[in-house]
Simulated scan of single mutants.
Amino acid sequence: MIMYKTEAEIAIMKTNSSLVSTMLGEVAKVLKPGMTTLDIDAFCKSFILDNKGIPTFFNFHGYPHNICASVNDVVVHGFPNKKELKEGDIVSVDVGITRDGYVGEHAYTFILGEVSAEVLQLVKVTKESLYKGIEKAIAGNRVGDIAHAIQEHTEKKYGYGVVRELVGHGLGKTMHEDPQIPNYGKRGTGPVLKENVVLAIEPMVNMGKKEIFTESDGWTVKTKDGSPSVHFEHNVCVKKGKALILSDYSIIEAAEQTNSNLNTSYYTNTAKASS
């Protein structure tokens, strides 16, 4: 069942989503080689508790951490660990907060230092595809319109592998509500989008082939061919004419630019789209 939100509920979710953006912005200020993803997990837990929230991910279906930290060929759901991050790593941090009965959660991929032109392009294109999908998240369109826009920009235009088994989703009092939002599909298919449904739109795109596998921990999803994968996610409310983006990448992007350890050379144009 698709749950539609009141304007008051949307306001709460916008506050929570913006708070997640602020948290990811604080991560962007300090992220550097030598840190561990467990360091990021501890930081985010403290941030959430300090802001009178509940870490949404912790114990969700038994998940044992407060964030998902997915590095290089990890697509999503990576366990934070003690391995030191290094120059050339790409790091997706996905985190959620529950406050006042509603969830805000989204993800951002960071680049540590210098990487190949191919990796820069993958990050840039995946981020662009998120906004291509959001452009279609308007009342009267269908879920397939979002999915097609993302696939068209990534897989059809650049030959990347769009993950099939993992999808975006509705968002509200729980982290996963209807409808599911795939990152591939045909225009004009799927449920009709109506005003005031809140979605987590999240392209998960591999540089190589689309095939993935899950490690023995039951959570960590990796590319089957070992190629890098990138994950971006926004919280979006469907409206007439133009979607309302509840999360705020401009906070994260501004923080990235203050940190010389992070590579922001790819997003000159996408940064404008998020403001």
Rank of each mutant, 00 (worst) to 15 (best):
A139Q: 14
G226V: 01
V125C: 01
K157V: 07
H148F: 09
P179M: 00
G226F: 00
S129R: 14
N81Q: 04
T6F: 05
E165F: 12
R142F: 11
V91Q: 09
A107G: 11
V93H: 01
S92N: 15
K210I: 09
M207W: 03
Y63A: 01
D178H: 05
K157M: 13
Q121L: 08
H148S: 11
I251V: 13
K173I: 14
S216W: 14
V163R: 00
Y160A: 12
G88F: 10
G190S: 13
Y184H: 12
S17M: 03
V125H: 09
Y108V: 04
A255K: 02
S18Y: 08
K222P: 08
K127V: 09
H234G: 07
S129C: 09
H77F: 01
E26P: 10
H231P: 00
L166V: 09
D100F: 15
T37V: 12
S116N: 05
S116V: 04
A243T: 07
Y267V: 05
G140W: 15
G96N: 08
G140N: 01
I67T: 12
H65Q: 13
I67G: 11
Q151I: 03
M35L: 15
M13E: 05
G161T: 11
H231C: 00
V125R: 14
I40K: 00
K194V: 13
D225N: 04
G104K: 05
I67K: 03
A273D: 09
K242C: 02
E7L: 03
H65G: 06
A28L: 00
C68Q: 15
L193I: 07
V197R: 07
L246A: 03
H106F: 04
E256I: 15
D73H: 10
E7V: 11
S70V: 05
V119K: 11
F232C: 03
T223E: 04
H153Y: 14
K136D: 06
I146R: 02
P182V: 10
I67R: 07
F79A: 14
E215F: 12
V103A: 08
G34P: 14
L38Q: 13
Q121G: 08
E215D: 12
P182L: 05
P55F: 00
N72A: 00
S250C: 00
L112I: 12
Y102W: 14
Y63Q: 02
G104S: 10
V93A: 07
T109A: 10
L130Q: 08
P179K: 06
E211K: 06
G113Y: 14
Y267F: 08
A243F: 08
T56G: 14
D89G: 06
F57P: 00
H61A: 15
T109M: 09
F79K: 03
K45G: 12
V91E: 10
S116Q: 04
Y266I: 04
K83C: 01
I245S: 07
V143G: 06
I150N: 12
T258H: 04
G101V: 02
R164H: 15
Y267K: 12
G53Y: 07
V221S: 04
L38M: 15
K45T: 13
V125P: 00
D225H: 06
A28Q: 02
N81F: 04
N259R: 03
P228Q: 01
F213W: 08
E87I: 07
V27R: 01
D89I: 06
K156R: 08
H65V: 05
E165D: 13
E26M: 03
I10W: 06
S21Q: 02
T174R: 09
M207P: 02
I138M: 11
D89H: 08
